[in-house]
Design a protein around this nucleic acid. Sequence first.
DNA 1: CTTAATTAGTTAGCAGGCTAACTATAATAT
DNA 2: ATATTATAGTTAGCCTGCTAACTAATTAAG
Lengths: 161, 161
Amino acid sequence: MVKNIPFYETLDLTLCGNMGRVHRLCREAVTIAVEPLGLTQSRWTALMHINMLKEGVTQLALSQSLGIEMPSLTRTLKQLEEQSLIVRRVDEHDKRSKKLYFTEQGRSILHTLNERITDIKAQLYNGFSHAQLDAMAYGLVKMEENALNCIKSQTKAKNDT
Amino acid sequence: MVKNIPFYETLDLTLCGNMGRVHRLCREAVTIAVEPLGLTQSRWTALMHINMLKEGVTQLALSQSLGIEMPSLTRTLKQLEEQSLIVRRVDEHDKRSKKLYFTEQGRSILHTLNERITDIKAQLYNGFSHAQLDAMAYGLVKMEENALNCIKSQTKAKNDT
DNA sequence: CTTAATTAGTTAGCAGGCTAACTATAATAT
DNA sequence: ATATTATAGTTAGCCTGCTAACTAATTAAG
């Protein structure tokens, strides 16, 4: 029974609080669905992105794709390696970097994982038009830009002191 | 240089990852601005909501307004009390619940806090039309509903087993 | 009235973001 | 050739969400 809720009644007052909550809820919805596979949010997200970027991707590239910092990723990959779903191999051409590959077991759960995520995604986007989804995605990208600029200008102002 | 980014290139692949990242960045932008006041994100958000709901609000009502669970709030309020910015007083009519009040010191930083947040908000929403912001807010509410339904139906399916 | 169920709040501990400080390798400058 | 700087990854530890299990007070049932 959602009507045309004026922006200032929702997003504005709590600033970005709503975004955080919706994010947590969407995340939870998927996590419930893939829990039987022994995966948490950070782990299934990482698996999906490795698959998307193709095996052999470096940790740095993966962290950028995920939009998280290296230390956050390191922990997740460690867990995935302990679960024997992936392996990390040092790149022979640049011994600083490590490339990521699925194990047999890791590759074998990809299909089920993909299926379940697609299912949940359909439920989350239920009732949205393509135009609406595009508008949201565009808004998010724009707000991300604004936030980055805002952070940058503040950091700069501090250093100039 | 953001063009008309097709939804499936952004929000879809990472599902709700973008929302999480934008949320973190917006949060960071404000936090930098209010750090000199000795406040973190959870603390300034709580202060703003207490002010909005008026002093004397219960912890339960505050947690619902913030969209977080009680234990998350308990910790934050404990810190605010240790900073002597608020006090918690047992409600005489229902000794289970506690009501929240600002201290002198707490009330005195509200003005500065409000000012800085308003400033950052303007930067984050820079370039957005009212219609765009409303569309995003509406989309978030709708997706939250979808997520809640999705979680509920999954939980129910599990219990029926 | 006494007992059972519900409710507000707390504590303990997990999940997954983050920064700061570190190691080891590679690239650049002198 | 050597010394400096930059880069990929790790470790340690903070912040703030969460659930599960608890206490104490209130409400509902028998």
